[in-house]
Amino acid sequence: MKKQITITINGEQHAVEVEPRTLLVHLIREQLSMTGTHIGCDTSSCGACTILLDGKSIKSCTVLAIQADGKSVQTVEGLAAPGEMHPIQEGFKECHGLQCGFCTPGMMMRAVELLEHNPNPTEEEIRWGISGNLCRCTGYNNIVRAIQYAGAKMQGKETPSTEPTFV
């Protein structure tokens, strides 16, 4: 039995019908065709589906769409206007924080909330802060750098060097 819900995604309000069992990630990806949010596992282990729900990073594969009724969602598509970049996107690009790009949207959405709580995270804090996001390509070194870069950029500070340390 479908139910009507209202959900604001990236600032735009959507009135949609969902089954109670519809997962939030499927609403976003399939019904609303925003495919930047990905699915990588069944057990809320990988974090590829991370979005912001009322500003908090959550795993949208383990939340029902109906639970987001009346709430506000931000996905990777809402980070910046087309052609522009949010500091976290810039950090990932400048520091080579992505390879295949599949974990990247979830990783960035998590990083956005992390930096909101802690604008100057240490390496250790970043590593623990992204421990709910699996990346199979990068070995995480450059993701740590990307988040540090974004943290500096968001505070208007000088950004760290993005040259590779491959000597």
């Binding site: 974090g47 959550i58 795993k59 992390l114 623990w128 992204i130 709910g132």
Partner: peptide, 12 residues
């Protein structure tokens, strides 16, 4: 809490 699951799970 630091050791319970991960930050996103702890948000829910």
């Amino acid at each position: 809490t630091k050791l319970i699951a991960d930050p996103q799970v702890r948000n829910m």
